[in-house]
Design a protein around this nucleic acid. Structure first.
Lengths: 356, 356
DNA sequence: TTGAAAGCGCTAACAG
DNA sequence: CTGTTAGCGCTTTCAA
């Protein structure tokens, strides 16, 4: 242990140097309204010159308020979001629960009850919000409104086109897509048709994955026959129907890259078309039902999206923005983990899968 | 924002309930000596009963001391450790510099000056320490002594056999080794000799990587001819000599997995033996000199060890131990990133490589 | 061994 | 618009 740095510049020091009161200095430093522009400038300049840095600990202790972060996520349907929630919770604990109040607003599924949950959250008053992607235009409208009111929103999992979030945390679509391309190219026969099943190409993140995958195949494996991307819109039926159709048109499908969470439906279509085990399959999620397929190599591998880390990072970014006012310059992109037959069990040891 | 929880139990509440002073309660709660065993028990019981939880923010603000964490790492030789340092620094900034004082004790290389740096650190007094692996028995002796004095030590990068660190942060050797095995098995011809170059098999982490790799090959690719592991002891000359020897004995080497940071020397040996581009190579680091080899596919891929994340995690774990007294039950293991030709550039975009 | 009281640096309520 | 002052919950003297 060591004594606190005595050379540290405090509000009191600034106040003395400028012959102002601590209250005034505080007002200038924290952008409070009750102060003249002139004094504010003077204070800010002095603060910069003297090297003032706010002491967050003291600030938190002193203010009788805590930040309120709302978490709007579907509950009980997608394992991805269950994991995201765990990550948020863990980071919340690590960063100190005494500073932030976490409040969950669940809804039963993507697109159902989302609006109501959002309205509840808004009504309860909040300083920031973590959400997952949404395609609902009405929801988007509300989000834009929230942002206008100055409430920062962090989106986790995908981006939301048309909504100016403070940050967006996703898997790196370029790394993911190009690695998928490389693996498909190397691990499958080097001729024949290659399919890619995605969510919705109006979502930037989805589109970038597709494009990276495609350009990797074109550049390094030109002998493969790249089929147009299939959009399944995160819908089980749609994914199944379109996959069946695909397999009818291409009964010799060499490989299939499922770039968002639709693997189960696609696998079912493969099975029903008697292609399971013949077509090389690369997925991006890690569901319980997927494990036997990976073990038996019917699924060559999965580019795990690390939902827990995504949740933790989203929380952290929002926390940082709320306490320091800095938003990340770039979208935040995590690198995927490659999980295959051999490393699956070593991976799972440290990472109990949530049910479903 | 929301008012602070008014139902929170404070020291003052305990004091009032027990008809003691805040000072006495504080002494009991923090294991200070100047208190009778009887009152201490009474206080602790009441604290538990009433659900008291210390407010760390207030505690830090009030105490005139800060934690002192020493970082003992080589400087200017291994890019790995440069990155580890960046990670430590970032996490330090994120977790609040006002709580901890970071102090660096550098030394010029693994095994040189390490002892002196350690002694300087010890003499300066410290609450915790982050170090990297060491093979030096004299250094280990000192570390054990430090631990006996109650100074927690977190080891980053590898483990230190025989030293009871509070935590050890490494890449997951099982995931890493088995994934390497899978990739070697799938991406190389399925016959011929396979080599593995490691550091030092007395280091648990190194041994586990080797064993995972071997058992994966044996289980899934039995037609490959697995050669005994080569130990290079993180020494450039040794790595080169032994590789040359290896290649003389096995001029048809199918693949080579370099499981610790010796890739450059091994690649030089491959080149000098005219085998570069013929033998499939899998590495674990990401040096500047390696990039052209990855781009040209002479190196099939690298299982990146994420040194920055390792540093950040090490800091975080130590911080947590120092403030909460909890040590992780298990060694902390990160999963590697697979980097290949196609995703290399997408990966580097967000991650400027340090020089050398 | 215990109690009383003065801060840590900042915020917020109130007065001017 | 600005100044004054009383805390936030805990630690740390200093006195008893």
């Amino acid at each position: 242990m060591v004594p606190k740095d005595p050379s540290k510049v405090r509000i009191k020091d600034l106040a003395q140097a400028l012959e102002l009161s601590m209250g005034t200095v505080d007002r200038a430093l924290n952008n409070r309204p009750e102060i003249s522009a002139a004094t504010r400038e003077k204070v800010l300049k002095a603060a910069r010159r003297m090297g003032y840095h706010p002491d967050l600990v003291a600030s938190v202790l002193s203010s009788k308020r805590r930040l309120r972060i709302a978490v709007n996520l579907p509950r009980g349907v997608t394992p991805f979001h269950e994991e995201v929630r765990v990550g948020i919770e863990e980071e919340h604990a690590a960063l100190g629960k005494s500073v932030v109040n976490l409040e969950y607003f669940h809804f039963p599924g993507l697109g159902s009850g989302e609006m109501a949950a959002l309205d509840r959250a808004i009504k309860s008053g909040l300083d920031g919000m973590i959400i997952s992607s949404t395609a609902d235009t009405e929801v988007k409208e509300r989000l834009r409104h929230l942002i206008q009111l100055g409430v920062p929103i962090v989106c986790v999992g995908t981006d939301i086109p048309g909504v100016d979030t403070v940050a967006t945390v996703t898997i790196d679509p370029f790394v993911s897509g190009s690695l998928a391309g490389e693996l498909v190219g190397r691990l499958s026969a080097n001729t024949g048709p290659i399919a890619i099943v995605t969510g919705d190409t109006t979502v930037t993140n989805h589109r970038q994955k597709v494009e990276s995958f495609q350009s990797t195949i074109q550049q390094f494996f030109p002998s493969l026959d790249l089929l147009p991307a299939i959009e399944a819109h995160d819908n089980v039926e749609e994914a199944y129907e379109k996959s069946i159709e695909l397999l009818r048109a291409h009964p010799d499908l060499t490989a299939c890259y499922i770039s968002t969470g639709n693997s189960i439906a696609v696998l079912k279509a493969l099975k029903d078309s008697k292609m399971l085990g013949k077509t090389m399959v690369l997925t991006t999620d890690l569901l319980k039902q997927l494990l036997p397929h990976i073990r038996s190599n019917r699924v060559a591998g999965t580019l795990y999206q690390r939902p827990r880390q995504q949740g933790a990072t989203a929380y952290r970014v929002l926390h940082h923005y709320l306490s320091q006012g800095q938003r990340p310059a770039q979208p935040i992109r995590l690198d995927p983990y490659l999980i295959m037959r051999a490393n699956l069990d070593a991976f799972l040891v440290r990472r109990p899968l949530s049910q479903s």
